[in-house]
Design a binder for these strands. Structure first.
Lengths: 195, 195
DNA sequence: AAGACAGTATACCGAACGGTATACTGTCTG
DNA sequence: CAGACAGTATACCGTTCGGTATACTGTCTT
C-alpha cells in the first residue's frame, strides 16, 4: 500500500479508537511508518487530513442514498424506508469505522472543529431522511413538523443498532447486517413495541 | 461563588462546548479567574476534574430513577415508562449541559479516557431501562433479548429529542420538556409512526 | 545528459500541554 | 500569641503539540 493510503487508513483507525483531539500527528506518522513532512505533503494540516479521511469514507454513500426513490407516486412507503435503511446499513457495514466515527460526532460540541468537518455529511443524511418522510405525508397524515422527529427516530434506531454490533464483533473486518435484522428494525420503527 | 464551584461550572461549560480533549487546563483556569495550583489543589488532575464534574452532575439523577417502580405487579407498563421518561427529561432539562455532555460520549471511542469516566453513568441508565422492559415481559411478550433493543430505541429517542431542543434554545438557562411532548415521545416509541 | 518535480527524511521551531516546587496569605485553634 | 493548615500565586518543569525550512532522493520528460 502506498504512503498516502496507509496514512489515511492509520488516521481513521486512530480517530475511531481515540478521537480526533486525542490523536497526535506524530502518532499517526509512527503507525504509518512515515515522517511528518510526508503527511504534510499530502494533507497540508491535521484538519486537512480529517477532511480527506471523511471524504474518502463517505463520498460513495451519497450516490446510492439519493437513488432511493421518493415515495411520491403512490409507491409503498415501507418499501422505500427499507431501501433507505438498507443503503445505510450496507454502507456502514462495509465502512464501519468511518460510519461510527461520523455517528459519534452527531452530538458532539458545535464549537469543536471536528464537528465543522463532519456537519455536511451528517446534515445530508438527515436531510435525505426528512425528505423521504415529507414525500410520504399523504399516507402518513399531515406531518406538521413531525418529519423531523421521524427522521431523528429512524436514524437514531439504525445508528444505535449499528453501534451495538460493534460491541460484539471486531470492527476490523466488515460488519454484515442480515436482512431479517433490517426488517426487524423497520418494524419496530413503524409499529412500535407491541409486536 | 467559591473557587471550587466556579472551576466546576467553567469546566462543564468548556467540556460541553469544545470536548474534553480540546480544552486545556490553562483555559479553564483563565475562565474561572484562578491559577493552576488552585485547580490542582481541589481536583488533583485533569481527569480528576472530569470525574468530579460528572459526579456533580449526575449523582442526583439516580435516586429518582431507581424509584420508578418496576411494572411487575400488573401495573400499567405505559405509566411506568412515562415515569422513567419523565425523570430523565426533567433531570436533563435542569442539568442540560451535563446530560448532553454525557450523551455525546455514548458512542465515543472506548479507548478514550473520557469514555472510562462516563461509562458507569451510561451503563447505569441503560441497565435501568433494560430492567424495566424485562420486568414487563409478561405483558410485552417474551423478550428473548429484545429488551436490549427496546432500551436502546427508547433512550435513543429521548436523547435525540433532547439534543434537538438544544439546537433551538440556548442551553445556559434550563430547558423545559412539556408534558405533551413527553406523551408524544412515548406514543411514538410504543406505537410507531402510524399515528 | 539536464532539468523538473513529487516524495521523503533530518532537524528544528514556538507554543501549549499537564503538572509541580516553593512561598506567601489568611483564618482558625491551641 | 504560636502554630497549623487550607487556599492561592509566581515561576518553573519536561514533554508533546502542530507545523516547517532545508536538503536529499528517485523517476520521468525533454
Amino acid at each position: 500500500m502506498e504512503n498516502r493510503e496507509r496514512i489515511l487508513k492509520c488516521a481513521l483507525d486512530l480517530f475511531y479508537a481515540k478521537g480526533y483531539d486525542a490523536v497526535g500527528i506524530q502518532e499517526i506518522c509512527q503507525m504509518a511508518g512515515i515522517t511528518k513532512p510526508t503527511l504534510y505533503h499530502y494533507f497540508g494540516s491535521k484538519y486537512g487530513l480529517l477532511e480527506t479521511v471523511l471524504k474518502n469514507g463517505f463520498d460513495e454513500l451519497f450516490a446510492p442514498m439519493d437513488q432511493v426513490p421518493d415515495p411520491q407516486q403512490g409507491e409503498d412507503v415501507e418499501h422505500m424506508l427499507y431501501e433507505f435503511l438498507s443503503v445505510l446499513t450496507d454502507y456502514a457495514g462495509a465502512n464501519y469505522k468511518a460510519y461510527l466515527f461520523l455517528m459519534s460526532l452527531c452530538y458532539s460540541p458545535r464549537e469543536n472543529e471536528t464537528y465543522r468537518a463532519v456537519q455536511p455529511y451528517l446534515s445530508r443524511i438527515h436531510a435525505r431522511a426528512v425528505q423521504i418522510f415529507e414525500a410520504a405525508s399523504d399516507r402518513l397524515g399531515n406531518m406538521n413538523g413531525r418529519q423531523e422527529q421521524f427522521a431523528i427516530g429512524f436514524l437514531g434506531l439504525i445508528n444505535h443498532y449499528l453501534m451495538m454490533l460493534g460491541n460484539q464483533t471486531s470492527p476490523d473486518e466488515g460488519v454484515h447486517v442480515p436482512e431479517d435484522a433490517k426488517r426487524g428494525l423497520l418494524h419496530q420503527f413503524l409499529h412500535g413495541i407491541y409486536s
